[in-house]
Amino acid sequence: MASVMGLLEERETAARVRVEELRAEADRILGELGAAEVVLERRVIAREELGETLAAGGDAVLAPVAEVPDPVPAVAGERKAPVAGSIVRRCGEGMTVQALAPDY
């Protein structure tokens, strides 16, 4: 017959394993929640911007958009894959259609 102390230690070990499993699952869920919140925030902003733009009509003066420099210069003839939330670069002197991602 096992001792009472031994039985309690086994139950404690099982409880400790369960706690670690739940912590790992909670960390995973918190990561997914953070990503989902970012997507939701982007959707809300997009809807608000569209609403403001439609409400302003065609008479609104649009503020100039600051051009975002590429962190890595593009190689001539190289096509980039589209990235969610990416900005289409403004056409500049010497640029060709090759500078755009294939989906554009």
Score class of each variant (00 low, 15 high):
5 M>D: 14
5 M>T: 15
7 L>I: 14
7 L>T: 06
8 L>R: 05
9 E>K: 09
9 E>A: 14
11 R>A: 15
11 R>V: 12
12 E>Q: 11
13 T>K: 10
13 T>F: 15
14 A>G: 02
15 A>Q: 15
17 V>P: 01
17 V>W: 09
18 R>Q: 15
20 E>L: 12
21 E>R: 14
21 E>S: 10
22 L>H: 02
22 L>T: 01
22 L>V: 00
23 R>I: 14
25 E>S: 14
26 A>Y: 09
26 A>G: 00
27 D>E: 14
29 I>F: 02
30 L>I: 13
30 L>F: 13
32 E>A: 07
32 E>I: 05
33 L>W: 04
33 L>M: 10
34 G>L: 04
34 G>T: 02
36 A>D: 06
37 E>P: 05
39 V>F: 00
39 V>P: 00
43 R>Y: 10
44 V>T: 03
46 A>Q: 02
46 A>H: 00
47 R>F: 03
49 E>G: 04
49 E>W: 08
49 E>M: 09
50 L>F: 08
51 G>I: 04
52 E>P: 02
53 T>Q: 09
54 L>F: 00
56 A>V: 04
56 A>S: 06
57 G>R: 05
57 G>V: 08
58 G>F: 12
59 D>Q: 13
59 D>V: 15
60 A>N: 07
60 A>H: 09
61 V>M: 06
63 A>F: 10
64 P>D: 05
65 V>R: 11
65 V>G: 02
65 V>K: 03
68 V>F: 01
70 D>M: 12
71 P>S: 02
71 P>D: 00
71 P>A: 03
71 P>V: 03
74 A>G: 09
75 V>T: 15
77 G>H: 06
78 E>P: 03
79 R>W: 05
81 A>D: 07
81 A>G: 03
81 A>P: 01
81 A>C: 01
85 G>P: 08
86 S>R: 02
86 S>A: 08
86 S>H: 06
87 I>P: 01
87 I>D: 03
88 V>E: 05
92 G>I: 09
92 G>Y: 09
94 G>R: 02
95 M>C: 11
